[in-house]
Amino acid sequence: MQEQRPRGPRSGHPLTKAVIIDAAMLIVEQGGANALTLRRLGAELGTDHTAVLRHFRGKDQIILGLAERLMSEALSEFEPGSGWRATLSQLARQVRQTCIRHPSVAVLAAMRVSRSPDEFRGADIVIAALSQVGLRGRKAALIYRTITDLALAAGSYEAAMLTLDESARDGDREALRREYLLASPRDYPHLAAVAQFLADVDDEEQFETALELILDGIEVHAARVAGSSETSPG
């Protein structure tokens, strides 16, 4: 199938922020995080790179635009669940899937603060869910920052793994199947006891387990906060 190029001056369409981000996405997905430069972007768009600076103040602003695009895509098919736990689970899965679809872009931009309406919408969804479990004010802010950073870190880590050379990924997988099984039971008794199961854990299972631990942690923390409020002097 013939590759579609982003619309821009080369095809007679006006240069806009959306067109520039389309081109930046393509460059990063094809060449990796280090491939994005203003000159490469100008060449991809069929224009002088200085034209890009009429829409973005510099490369960092473009990276923030990529972060905004990731969040926009993650939210595009998001529907809140029937309760706080289902809502946060669904949002986390959407973010993860977006990172997996665009691993090089996620490595470059997922951890940035885009200051965009979609990012604000995502934050509002998370904080609303936390309020349902009794976390408000500064506690809600603390837990929001903590769990979103954990979720983005997990998505970015998995994305980074996908950008590795295939031989490196195969080597790491093979280490779990072979080298870990050879670990001395005398020197590493606890590792040796579970080594046979390590290679069986896939990315999906690992993500879902991490998500469950985070959600369980929120519930325990909310209960602790509620208990503390009840016992504090009135």
Rank of each mutant, 00 (worst) to 15 (best):
residue 58 G to V: 02
residue 37 T to I: 09
residue 229 S to D: 12
residue 83 G to L: 06
residue 160 A to R: 07
residue 142 L to T: 08
residue 218 I to S: 07
residue 176 L to E: 04
residue 102 H to F: 11
residue 68 E to L: 00
residue 100 I to C: 05
residue 151 A to K: 02
residue 223 A to D: 15
residue 148 T to A: 01
residue 175 A to Y: 09
residue 195 A to W: 00
residue 216 D to C: 10
residue 23 A to E: 02
residue 144 Y to L: 06
residue 81 G to E: 06
residue 155 G to K: 01
residue 69 R to Q: 15
residue 233 P to K: 08
residue 64 L to D: 13
residue 69 R to S: 15
residue 111 M to E: 14
residue 110 A to Q: 07
residue 148 T to Y: 01
residue 33 A to V: 14
residue 27 I to F: 01
residue 229 S to F: 04
residue 98 T to F: 03
residue 29 E to G: 07
residue 103 P to A: 07
residue 110 A to M: 13
residue 92 A to P: 04
residue 232 S to E: 09
residue 26 L to T: 11
residue 40 R to V: 11
residue 194 V to K: 08
residue 3 E to T: 14
residue 165 D to T: 04
residue 115 R to M: 03
residue 2 Q to I: 05
residue 16 T to L: 07
residue 114 S to F: 09
residue 207 F to E: 11
residue 221 H to E: 12
residue 31 G to P: 01
residue 17 K to E: 13
residue 110 A to N: 06
residue 233 P to H: 08
residue 228 S to N: 06
residue 146 T to V: 03
residue 34 N to H: 09
residue 193 A to E: 05
residue 61 Q to A: 15
residue 205 E to S: 14
residue 50 T to D: 10
residue 159 A to F: 02
residue 93 R to I: 15
residue 218 I to C: 10
residue 34 N to F: 04
residue 167 S to P: 00
residue 91 L to P: 00
residue 32 G to A: 05
residue 120 F to E: 15
residue 228 S to E: 13
residue 15 L to T: 11
residue 120 F to G: 10
residue 52 V to I: 13
residue 140 A to Q: 15
residue 77 E to S: 12
residue 7 R to Y: 07
